[in-house]
Amino acid sequence: MRTERNLTRLDRLFARLDREPERPAGLEVPSMSPHRIVLFGSTLVFYLLIVVAVINTSWLVRLDWQLMFFRPYQQWPEVHAFIDYYVVLGQRGPTAVMVAAWLGWRSWRQHTLRPLLMLGTSLLLLNLTVGAAKLSMGRLGPHYATVIGSNEMWRTGDIFPSGHTANAVVTWGILAYLASSARTRRYLSALSAVVSLGVGLSTVYLGTHWLSDVLLGWAAGLLILLALPWFEPLVTRIEARVLAERDRLLRRFRDTSAAPAPAPPLFPQPGPAADDGTPAREPVGAARTSRTTGHFTQRGHLVRAERAPVTPAGSRRPAHADSSTRVSHSTPASPVTGG
């Protein structure tokens, strides 16, 4: 009887770390549903109410001053060191690097650029919206307040809304937004809410932000997360264009790196002789120009005009120049007389 080995929790973990053979077909992309539109509208109204309450120096501003005079960092100094480290979870640099590393692995595993593109889109929206609100309202923080009970608006400050809080909501909330299942999305949503809530209260404890700054930061970050489905079509087009450009560059690189085949010689030379001493045969269709040329060069045929004609009357070639000499040697020499 054949039995299969039961996978342990560690085996299942390593199986999930392996890369998918191809892009999964069932990736769920959030859409702008009516429920999400209602949440977006409610959060926007909450955002505007906080701004109006601070501008009008309402009860919310008085609560800000009461917490500032309470000085939580003096009431509970034993947790000050922990809060100094915990508030880093809301700083844009460290959190963006950690989340980008995780989403980069997700992109590699699922053969898609969507996680990284959505992270870049959310951070771009965060910088534009929160940065514009900070600069336009210019509110001073608790440590730089000038008039007790005032809202400290339009005094060249940059703390309203809280950037730490908004960044924590967006950076950790994008993990829940990109979750591959509804169950994982619920767990990550709860975790990101706890982290962002803790970061916002940490800034109030340290005295770097008013409570109203934190409330507006929560609303600003939530608005960005709720608006992300509107940017999904744009992200899809950008991903398709980037992948098409990557494939084109890869094809060009492969074409240029492949070595061309050598061209055949115009006049192939005969191969080496065989082991038994017989010359190798020439290939069929090989040119015979070189062999023919060599034959005429080494031993040329005589022209017919150069041959001596032989006739019955004898040879027409003139006598050799040495013939007279041979005759003179055969006759006796006459004595030479002188007078």
Rank of each mutant, 00 (worst) to 15 (best):
R5N: 14
D11H: 08
D11S: 06
D11K: 08
R16A: 10
R23L: 00
V29D: 14
V29Y: 02
P30V: 05
S31K: 15
S33L: 05
H35V: 04
R36D: 12
V38N: 10
S42K: 03
T43A: 09
V45S: 08
F46D: 08
A53L: 09
I55Q: 12
P77D: 15
F82G: 13
I83H: 02
D84T: 08
Y85T: 03
Y86T: 03
L89K: 02
A100Q: 02
W108H: 12
L116Q: 07
L117F: 05
M118T: 07
G120I: 01
T121D: 05
A132W: 11
A133Q: 08
S136F: 10
S136I: 10
S136C: 14
G138V: 05
R139E: 01
H143V: 07
M153Q: 11
A166W: 06
N167D: 14
A168Q: 03
I174K: 04
I174L: 09
A176C: 05
R183L: 04
R183I: 01
A193G: 12
L201F: 15
L201M: 14
L206I: 08
G207F: 09
L211I: 00
D213Y: 01
G221I: 06
L222M: 13
L223I: 13
L226P: 14
A227Q: 05
L234M: 13
V235S: 02
R237P: 03
L243N: 08
R248Y: 01
R254A: 09
D255K: 10
P264K: 12
P268W: 00
D276S: 06
R281K: 10
R281Y: 03
E282C: 05
E282W: 07
P283D: 09
A287Q: 13
T292R: 11
H295N: 09
L302F: 13
L302V: 12
V303N: 13
V310Q: 09
V310N: 00
D322G: 04
S323D: 09
S324V: 14
T325D: 14
V327Q: 14
S328Q: 07
S330V: 14
P332Q: 11
T337F: 11
